[in-house]
């Protein structure tokens, strides 16, 4: 029982990170109908930015940690908008495949630019412990403040996202563009602004995900985004691509499966089993768990 709870906690914190990344994939898909393959590298840049900024911050303080988190989110927001403006927007009216290939190009560009030793270097660096770190022992259960932090921050960000998307004017405009870009233009919405905002929002979440991941796994390197990015993408598809609650659900599901299989005797197969489940779910629900034609898409 204790072990189960322990694993559940691990699962939640890993799933929360996947969910944060998955939200970016799903939102961009919602408004532009394309998969931003560079998203996983925005996640990496978040961790790298946190690593570089965190060095100049005191360790173990709340304000230092939150500054680091916020700074990484801002850096990623700017990066996301920059990528969209200069790599994707010029291709807005060309076939979607071109944009997709460009996204892969941007992804590789980021990964290998950061491997340059003058930029960051290929060797993993340890992430500064900017947040206060406490470990509690509770009836045999090991609770680390980092894990709670991951779950807490992810929760706060998802609630904030939900608020932005469903309660604000720009969020409603995002949904309007996702539903019918032409009609959105006819009411005076500038689609470029909405798309920019979507990238900013999704990238900020990826940046936060990067920091939280780095806090938990302690190491940062330029290819660190590849696997979590892939899994988050899978999570977005499982949840129903374009669907915000679906992405969160998919993230938690993938995190849970991975953690529990990882903790069993089949641990070497944890990724294989997670992806096999993806295939299984999609066989029975091709549109994803929450993906139906009438659900909210962003």
């Amino acid at each position: 029982m204790t072990e189960f709870l322990q694993q559940l906690l691990n699962a939640l914190s890993l799933g929360a990170i996947y969910a944060l990344i998955a939200l970016g994939y799903t939102m961009v898909y919602g408004v532009l109908r394309f998969i931003n393959f560079a998203h996983s590298d925005v996640f990496m840049v978040g961790a790298v930015a946190g690593c570089l900024i965190g060095k100049h911050l005191p360790t173990g303080t709340w304000w230092g940690g939150l500054t680091c988190l916020l700074a990484a989110m801002i850096v990623c927001s700017a990066l996301g908008m920059f990528i969209e403006r200069f790599a994707y927007r010029p291709l807005r009216s060309s076939p979607r495949l071109n944009v997709l290939i460009t996204a892969i190009g941007v992804s590789l560009l980021l990964e290998y630019t950061f491997q340059n030793e003058h930029v960051f270097g290929a060797a993993p660096r340890s992430f500064p412990q900017v947040f206060p770190q406490v470990v509690w022992q509770l009836r045999g259960l090991t609770l680390s403040s980092n894990q709670l932090l991951v779950i807490g921050v992810a929760l706060v960000l998802m609630v904030a996202l939900q608020f932005i998307v469903f309660r604000t004017k720009i969020g409603t405009a995002m949904r309007a563009v996702a539903l019918n870009p032409r009609a959105a233009q006819l009411v005076g919405i500038n689609p470029d602004v909405v798309v920019s905002f979507t990238f900013a929002l999704g990238s900020a979440l990826a940046g936060a995900g990067g920091i939280l991941y780095a806090l938990n796994y302690q190491s940062v390197e330029p290819l660190m985004g590849v696997m979590p990015g892939l899994k988050a993408f899978v999570a977005a598809v499982i949840g129903g691509i374009g669907n915000i609650p679906g992405a969160a659900l998919g993230g938690l599901l993938i995190g849970t499966i991975e953690t529990f299989v990882g903790g069993s005797q089949l641990s070497t197969y944890k990724d294989a089993i997670a992806f096999a489940l993806l295939i299984l779910i999609l066989l029975f629900r091709p549109a994803g768990l929450l993906g139906r034609s009438h659900v909210e898409k962003v």
Partner: peptide, 17 residues
């Protein structure tokens, strides 16, 4: 071309964007 998943109120609000 109404925004099918948005409520009537939200559709009108978007008209006043």
């Amino acid at each position: 071309m109404v925004f099918a998943n948005l409520s009537v109120a939200e559709n009108l609000a978007m008209g006043a964007f």
